[in-house]
Design a protein around this nucleic acid. Structure first.
Lengths: 356, 356
DNA sequence: CTGAAAGCGCTTACAG
DNA sequence: CTGAAAGCGCTTACAG
């Protein structure tokens, strides 16, 4: 493989800085009891600001980190439920890598439950609860299900939606700005001199598909380049649907100079179709994707795409749900949080400046 | 906050059967001390056979499982190092999912270290040790490096090689039988009526590549179908190398009726090349892969392939390394173990009976 | 708002 | 070969 896959936890921060400093070391230095330190690190409200500061200072100076194993021994292992239906294999495994890594660091346990469709989701949620889930993570496409989120809200289960494009204000969410990402890609293609760009839409049920398309249309329009209907093809985020869509787009009398597929699987399919028509990529047709899943660097030429930090999102989602669970246990109200992760434009070989 | 009690009708194997039975419950029932139970569950040698049996019986009756969090609190979290260089992204993430899941269940922690090539591996091993690794997992292609394994052996570090085709008797290994798997695939193609089968070899540095090729050749020969040189193409396990190899194989005057690529990335490339030549898959040319990585079900038609249980191998490797570390701590000699995982032949749409 | 005590479930010395 | 005691680092009652 040409490039080393991103290692999930390798960089970040040492898995756990094998510190021998305990809560009591902090207590001693801050001249308080261990109890008080415990309160501070758990965000308990009943600590004076002054005391909290003293403790935080000592924590910083000593480089203290909580021993999650000891905490888990006392408090019971916190269980994070993952309710998933049918995201792509690539998405799920990248997400799991991040989520599991963080569970490990947080001393939590990940339990998975599959649910085939929206009808069975209530049962899946109940199974997760029966298995002792303290909080639940909801990746696409379930994260866009109002009824799933509503059900979870009603039963008071801490919830984090992942990779939804239109987050509910009622529930926490970890996501990228799909609109912005698609806008960046469109601008990049424009700046490379492409004017006649075709677009492959994704599954209309997925909110990211809608926003990516909208961003493309809006950005083109802003440049005074309205997109005719024959430059838009409907896909379903699958490779196979990309095959059909790309065939449709490339069999026009006048071909576009670039295709922006709204995910990598469809972009990979577009490359295959182009090659099948003896078109060179990117010389005859530039092709771009979205997500930066493993297939993006498997195909040749490698795909220019928007890198969605799926592993980091899994990590962040677990961090957030763990916070929520602990807030709840501490008797606090759980306020929904929305975390926007940074995406990056990965320019690779499948795109190049337009000719002329 | 107390966790809701588990329903007795538990699922398969709940992540951890949240049993409330402790070591002392077992001790009481077996009429021994907690210390003795601890010795038994840790495989300590200094327990009489009779006592051990009593304890095991009580454990079974009570459904006791050790509380890994409590153990970790006492004994320090066990750290499993993962030394990897450049396996494909798909392999690594599938492996990580299995390995991390098992680490979670075992109360261990996974720490990753990348090493670019064989020259830097010694340093990578030292970094892993500095980070507190108690045992090290070595996936391909490093698992085939004699010098890496030798170094680890010399410093007395418990080691498990993963997915090597030619395991060293000196080190533990978790793998599938690559020879057998390739033989199964070849037999399947033969049974479907194919006689003229081409083969795309993998990176000659990887032991699985060698065995898969050998199995193909041997099986064909047994059937009285020796394979001419023009039916063999050299690949490197990458998509791009598969593109080149497939082009070579399919541009012969007389085309084979099937191509067996020794991994999925190359098989996916072969499909793309076939489509580019306006050949139908599987009607005009059947194509098979090996590994069953996500790309196998991303491309269309989906790939017939040998399913290598990569996630399970990650799980098994962690289980084994944890055993080794604990054996070592208990003062036992670590005897290398070799675990063969089951592969399965996944017949999908990319192959069909030969015509005629 | 803060603290002294007890205990989570297990293992490490130390005995016998 | 077996056990009584102490303690891992943290948190949960219970006080004040």
């Amino acid at each position: 493989m040409p490039r080393a896959p991103k290692s999930p936890a390798a960089k970040e921060e040492p898995v756990r800085p094998a510190t021998n400093v305990t809560l009591y070391d902090v207590a001693e230095r801050a001249r308080v009891s261990g109890m008080t330190v415990s309160r501070v690190i758990n965000g308990n409200a009943h600590v004076s600001e002054k005391t909290r500061e003293k403790v935080m200072k000592a924590i910083g100076e000593l480089g203290y980190t909580v021993n999650v194993a000891a905490r888990a021994a006392r408090v019971g292992t916190l269980r994070v439920g993952l309710l998933y239906s049918n995201p792509s294999a690539a998405f799920l495994s990248a997400f799991l890598v991040g989520a599991m890594g963080q569970c490990n660091r947080s001393g939590a346990e990940l339990i998975l439950e599959h649910c085939e469709d929206l009808k069975t989701q209530r049962k899946a949620i109940e199974r997760l609860i029966a298995m002792g889930a303290d909080g639940i993570l909801v990746p696409p496409p379930l994260c866009d299900s109002r009824s799933a989120l509503k059900h979870l809200k009603e039963i008071g289960m801490p919830t984090v939606a992942v990779a939804t494009a239109k987050p509910s204000p009622q529930a926490s969410a970890v996501r990228i700005d799909d609109y912005d990402g698609a806008r960046s890609m469109t601008k990049y293609l424009l700046s490379a001199g492409h004017k006649d760009i075709a677009f492959i839409k994704g599954d209309p049920e997925h909110t990211p598909a809608q926003l990516r398309y909208q961003a493309f249309i809006d950005t083109m329009r802003e440049e005074g380049l309205p997109v005719p209907a024959e430059r838009i093809a409907q896909g379903m985020f699958t490779y196979r649907s990309g095959l059909v869509a790309a065939r449709e787009l490339l069999s026009q009398k006048v071909r576009p100079t670039a295709i922006f597929a709204s995910n990598d699987d469809m972009a990979a399919a577009a490359i295959a179709v182009a090659h099948g028509m003896h078109l060179q990529v990117p010389e005859d047709i530039a092709i771009a994707g979205f997500d930066d899943t493993p297939v993006a660097v498997t195909v040749w030429p490698e795909l220019t795409t928007i890198h969605q930090p799926i592993g980091d999102m899994g990590r962040a989602a677990v961090e957030m749900i763990v916070d929520h669970v602990r807030e709840r246990r501490a008797g606090h109200e759980v306020v929904p949080r929305h975390q926007l992760m940074p995406y990056t434009l990965e320019v690779r070989e499948s795109t190049a400046p337009a000719e002329g």
